[in-house]
Design a protein around this nucleic acid. Sequence first.
DNA 1: TTCTGAACTACTCCAAAGAGGGATTTTTTG
DNA 2: CAAAAAATCCCTCTTTGGAGTAGTTCAGAA
Lengths: 209, 209
Amino acid sequence: MESQSSIRVLIVDDHPMMRDGLRSTIEIEKDMRVIGEAVDGAEAIEMFSSLSPDVTLLDLQMPRVDGLQALASIRQAKPDASVVVFTIYPGDARVTQALNLGATSYLLKSASREEIIEAIRTTSAGHQVIAGEINDELQAHQGMAGLTVRELAVLRLVKEGMSNRLIAESLFISEETVKAHMKSILTKLSASDRTHAVTIASRRGFIDS
Amino acid sequence: MESQSSIRVLIVDDHPMMRDGLRSTIEIEKDMRVIGEAVDGAEAIEMFSSLSPDVTLLDLQMPRVDGLQALASIRQAKPDASVVVFTIYPGDARVTQALNLGATSYLLKSASREEIIEAIRTTSAGHQVIAGEINDELQAHQGMAGLTVRELAVLRLVKEGMSNRLIAESLFISEETVKAHMKSILTKLSASDRTHAVTIASRRGFIDS
DNA sequence: TTCTGAACTACTCCAAAGAGGGATTTTTTG
DNA sequence: CAAAAAATCCCTCTTTGGAGTAGTTCAGAA
């Protein structure tokens, strides 16, 4: 589709220097150009609908509306949108979530100029690019059960230092139910206690660190 | 000193796009230029001693040798070196540590082009620049007791899910001593339990997240 | 040198966490 | 619709965590 004209790219990142780097790297290539820069998720959603870029380069860590929310909105507005997630976060759970939300590709910020340019081209052609480290991580946790919505809600409160009793009150359930969720969380994450569970969940991208 | 000639800057960051952004932004200014780029702490130490830059722009989050270690080496080699820490990490404890290690200035990656350029100029002139958000954080925790070396060692093991008994064995001390350290940690961080302590310590930059 | 902070140890005591069972009711989905 | 998955609740039992209190040793600073 974009073989004749140039690939129109929207950059979404809250760090000015990172946007500058991406812009200057992309502008060097003859078959692509930057048509807009957004500094947070809210702006990303607006600019996506007004500009209709061919490829959106999307950071996940952003103030206000985060990248995953932006991704959801964008894919809802245009279900075949090509999005390259470009983030420092590995973590199989976050990657899986992004791919389920419709991200086409997933790159890390440690990627080289060439990898990024190549990923934009490949993604605009409708193909997927996943960073090697990410693939390793996905395979390492392949087949493992994810955490449910309720388990994540419990774990986020655990992280803030709440006791099972307080969590129960906060979620309007019994303490026994909280314990049941905790048991499931510890099993699924192979954690030795609640602190370990939070540590593992942060590393794997189930919850924000 | 550098008023006649241009300010010679060394960039240290493991993200190629970030380095590109910094380089192109700095090269626009007539009174400064980039004389080298390092991708990790080890390279930073080497390049610092071979190039003797006027200002070093240093990221903290890097593979192998991290930024704080690099900072320590650099300041040891040249005690009056001007270093601008440039990182995504806030966290008063990390900032305090960096400043104690001899960092001149502390900027966040959300900083604008103008703020970065201005910080390089000010720092090369021997003055300090601290990002506003960072100052707020420092003030908010000003006067609070820091964690001791031993308390940090305990907390890092707590984060990995170890029980007091296991931590005691691991550090060759009694479980009662571990409990004493935990009591002190919980008090100093105003944490409700060990999980909360790890969460707060990560946010404030006492331990890596 | 006295003093302060850090590291260490010991005791009691109770609340909380987690292991090991089992069971019911929604909700989702093939 | 039937089956599976998720969410709920309950009971026992043991281990662990954390509060409270008290003390020693040692090193470095005032």
